[in-house]
């Protein structure tokens, strides 16, 4: 109950092709995150799955049934939106009940399901309030409750955390992870935030310009990015890229090394550079080092490393953690 399959899905808005052929299989019970920069087509793809947007070609299958022309309400899905999208004229309870009423669910069943969802999301004291009387975090919980009560085959989340402030975002993220264990449902979650993607997903789908760049578990993407785009997108701070003779000696067009995989030394090392900027985060220290002929390299050190601006430093990449890419940006297998 709850598998999804996309087969050659394309979507054009006039002359502009927003989704350029997506093939994807999601088995029942998986938590999949679509991640990618703003405007890459994540929301469009999610709306196609929901049936809110018609795809131009290809097929969408939910539980092995083609749903290309099935209206959203009949697809067995529920969706949580970035802007919450609660009905302003209904109370929290009314918001959660509406979909079930439309389906013709018996009254007793509706109350039972709303009560259960409210307990799960700690919404009980808020049930009789209208959206305008709720805080952002509470609204988002009601929106999640509205999805939960429908017991859908597929949960769709479109950037549900991006309108919340930082602290609330972490809480709600934990809430979603907990909910996921309780519900054991298939979840498709869209975000542009790679931290959300890494922390929540069983599998991540990286999208760029309407194409899938790579599909894999968070650590697979971190360890073996399939191309330059994924390498640069997953991981924070960003991976360092080096081109030119340095890369050619390793039979590559570009080599990549993550900031946490660079050793520093004051006397000896592979590259010599000058510290251009230092960021102290407490748990980590980021050094931005200007290396002649190569550019600025970011280095991540544990704890409160003590370096002074402008001083000379030697950097040595860990050989085993080097990533090599060819001229078209594809990964060269080790």
């Amino acid at each position: 109950m709850g598998s999804l399959s996309l087969q050659g899905v394309r979507k054009s808005f006039g002359d502009f092709e927003a989704i350029k052929g997506v093939d994807l299989d999601i088995p029942d019970g998986e938590f999949v995150v679509f991640v990618g920069p703003s405007g890459c087509g994540k929301s469009t793809l999610l709306r196609i799955i929901a049936g809110l947007e018609e795809h131009t070609t290809g097929h969408v299958l939910i539980d092995d049934r083609v749903v290309d022309v099935v209206p959203p309400a009949k697809r067995g899905i529920a969706m949580v939106f970035q802007t919450y999208a609660l009905y302003p004229h209904l109370t929290a309870r009314g918001n959660m009940e509406l979909g079930l009423k439309q389906e013709g669910t018996p009254r007793a069943e509706i109350s039972a399901r709303v009560a259960e969802a409210a307990r799960m999301l700690a919404l009980e004291p808020l049930l009789d309030r209208r959206p305008s009387e709720l805080s952002g975090g509470q609204r988002q919980r009601v929106a999640i409750g509205r999805a939960v009560v429908r017991k859908p085959r597929l949960f769709l989340f479109d950037e549900p955390l991006s309108n919340l402030d930082a602290g609330l975002r972490v809480n709600t993220r934990l809430e979603i992870a907990r909910l996921r264990r309780l519900l054991k449902a298939t979840i498709i979650y869209v975000t542009h935030d790679q931290v959300e993607a890494m922390t929540l997903a069983d599998r991540i789908v990286v999208l760029n310009h309407g194409r899938i760049e790579q599909v894999g578990s968070p650590l697979e993407l971190y360890r073996r990015p399939a191309n330059l785009f994924v390498a640069g997108f997953i991981g924070s701070p960003k991976m360092n890229f080096v081109q030119g003779t340095e890369a050619e000696t390793l039979d590559a067009h570009t080599i990549g090394i993550r900031p946490e995989h660079i050793e520093t030394n004051l006397e000896i090392g592979h590259w010599q550079g000058e510290i251009a900027h230092i960021e102290h985060l407490g748990t980590d220290t980021y050094l931005y080092v200007d290396v002649p002929k190569i550019g600025t390299m970011t280095v991540r050190l544990d704890g409160e490393a003590d370096y002074s601006l402008g001083s000379s430093i030697f950097l040595t990449p860990r050989r085993t953690h080097l990533h090599r890419f060819d001229a078209s940006g594809q990964r060269i297998a080790a």
Binding site: R47, A50, L52, P71, P72, A73, I77, A78, M79, F81, Q82, T83, Y84, A85, L86, Y87, L98, G99, Q102, E103, R146, D158
Partner: peptide, 14 residues
């Protein structure tokens, strides 16, 4: 008018 609001209604079967 927010697209999300209209879409939420459609998903709820309105």
């Amino acid at each position: 008018v927010s697209d999300d609001l209209k879409n939420a209604g459609r998903i709820d079967g309105l």
